[in-house]
Structures are given as C-alpha cells and as structure tokens.
C-alpha cells in the first residue's frame, strides 16, 4: 500500500522467506546483525540454511563465495559500512572477479543511521561498488520496491550490491507495482525541472516537489533504483528533456549517483548536474531527519537546488 510508513529491512526479510521457500538451495549469511538486517526472519524459518559468521565480515564474504561456487544463490547481509567497507577486498577478489552469484544486501546505508554516528554511516559504498567490474547495484525507494527488487535480482545470476537505509519511510510504490531492474521509473511527472535520485531520501524530494507547486514550479522526480548497469539511454532522454538535472542521494556527492549521472551526461548530452548529497564530509550522531537537514539534504537544500538548476539552465 502507498503512504504507509514501513521498514524496507522487514520487506527484505519477507522476500528472503519467499525466496527460501521456492529455492531449497538458497542460503543466507549474516555477521551478528541478523536482528537488525532482518535475515533473522529467514533464520527462524530456515534455520539449516542460515549461517551466522559472527563479527567476521571478511570471512563471511569469502565463505559466501564458496557456498555460491557450489551453485547456490547466496544472500549476505550486514551493515553497509562493514559490507562495502570492511570486506571490500573479499567482495572484489572472491565474489566480483569471478562474477559469483552472491547478493550482498547491506542495511544501514547512508547518513540516516542516526545515533551510531559517522563510524557507522556509510557514504561511499555506491562509488566503491560502481567501480567494481561485474557488480550490479540496486537501491530501493521504499519497502515495496525492496520486496519486489529482491525477488527480481534473485533471478539474475551474478553479484549484486543492494543498499537499504535503516530508517522507515512512507511507501511510494505498491507491492503490485511492476518492477523492472535497469529502468528509471518516474515517481512524479513535472515540466519545469527534474530530480533524479536513489533510495529512501527520494521521499523528501517528492515532498519538496509537492510544496514547490505553490511557487508554480512543476518538478518531476525519477527513481534511479538501478545504479549499475547504468541506464544511459534514459539518462540521456531526461537530460535532453530538462536541460539540467538535480540529483539526490544519501551519499558522498564525489562518487555517488550525481557523479555517475554527470559522467554519463558528459558523454551523451552534456548538461549541468546539481548534486544534492553529502559534501565530502563525515557525519555525526543525531536523528535521521536532523542529519539529513544538516548534511545537504534539507528541504531548503532541495528547493534551492531545483531553483539553482533552473537558473543555470537559463
């Protein structure tokens, strides 16, 4: 259902149970965070196919590679900081290099982790994973898309990096919404400007787009849930249509979606890309909303970003 505050992590757990029921070979691993990542939901139902690696993410990733070599689909979860960060080399060497069928579902991505502070706020994982050959990246916008996306990527052989935020946000899509990996679906049509972003922060972009209507600014919002493979054709189409793109993400703007889109447009149809996100700075402890407000993702930041984009486009 739309408009309901739900946890994408819980939807991930539900998807794992559905997948585990239809694929008796599928296994799931976690590194002592199963109650947070919700792999515990799978563990409860399929205890003999769940393996806790303990607080040893590097071993977990390479063990997952070993399990997948024996033709299994393997889901591994931990916080984004420990997946893409701590175990980067294992993801690179043991999983991505031979394109093994390991789905890394990293929760607590971005700055909205909250009270844990910068040590747990992963703001560079998109860049890290985007640079890895063979790796695909999926970042859902809400719980429904999380469920549909997880079911969808399980059918695609090869490695995936999926990033979920800790926060619970209002649903934008429906469980019944048709999900196609690689597409960049439009969440809101608009004629004056466009915001293209990824993840749950898009809820804020939609709210701002709605409020800008009062100022007679009609903003479209696109959901780039698949970061890699990057949909160059759709980005070109959006660039041609709007002449300028505002991007939004819970990520360091140096290496995130803004940088990726900017790199694509510079190839196919150069336009200005106004990048909303974290400006190459570590975060801190705080509430999710407070952190977004302070670190480049406030309502004001988004409004100003849209207006600035329209101004430089001329």
């Amino acid at each position: 259902m739309k408009g309901v505050v739900e946890s994408p992590r819980k939807a991930y757990g539900e998807a794992l149970i559905a997948l585990g029921g239809s694929d008796p070979d599928m296994v799931v691993m976690d590194a002592d965070l199963s109650t947070s990542t919700k792999t515990a939901m799978f563990a409860k139902k399929f205890n003999d196919r769940f393996f806790n690696a303990g607080i040893a993410e590097q071993n977990m990733m390479a063990m997952a590679a070993g399990l997948s070599i024996d033709t299994r689909t393997v889901f591994v979860s931990t916080f984004a900081i420990f997946a893409a960060g701590r175990a980067y080399d294992q993801i690179r060497q043991s999983i991505a290099y031979s394109s093994l069928n390991v789905k890394i579902v990293a929760t607590h991505g971005g700055i909205t982790v909250g009270g844990d502070g910068a040590s747990h706020e992963m703001i560079e994982d998109i860049g890290l994973m985007y640079g890895l050959p063979n790796m695909k990246i999926f970042i859902p916008v809400d719980s429904n898309e999380t469920y549909n996306g997880i079911i969808s990527i399980a059918k695609i052989k090869g490695p995936f990096y999926v990033r979920l935020s800790r926060m619970e946000t209002e649903t934008i899509t429906e469980r019944e919404t048709e999900f196609k990996i690689n597409e960049i679906p439009v969440l809101r049509e608009g004629s004056d400007a466009v915001i293209v972003g990824t993840g749950q922060v898009l809820k804020r972009a939609l709210d701002v787009a709605e409020s800008l209507k009062k100022q007679n600014i009609d903003v479209a919002v696109y959901n780039m849930h698949t970061i890699k493979p990057v949909n160059r054709e759709e980005i070109e189409r959006i660039a041609r249509k709007y002449g300028v793109i505002v991007t939004i993400e819970e990520h360091n703007i140096n290496t995130g979606v803004g940088a990726i889109i900017s790199s694509v447009t510079s190839d196919v149809y150069p336009v200005h890309v106004v990048k909303l996100g974290i400006h190459d700075i570590f975060g801190e402890s705080g509430e999710a909303d407070e952190l977004m407000d302070k670190y480049g993702l406030s309502v004001k930041d988004i409004e100003e970003g849209v207006k600035y984009a329209m101004k430089i486009r001329g």
Binding site: F51, M63, G66, Q93
Partner: peptide, 24 residues
Amino acid sequence: EASTGSLGQGISIAVGLALSLKMR
C-alpha cells in the same frame, strides 16, 4: 575451483564450499 591471490581468502572460500557440500 576458486579465484585466489589475495591471501587469506582461499581458506574462507574452502570453508564455504565444504559447508555447502556437507549440506548436500
């Protein structure tokens, strides 16, 4: 059977593979 070279990882892969075979 496995891509190795970054030391320490091959044994982890072997543990995962052995676990998988044992399950079967």
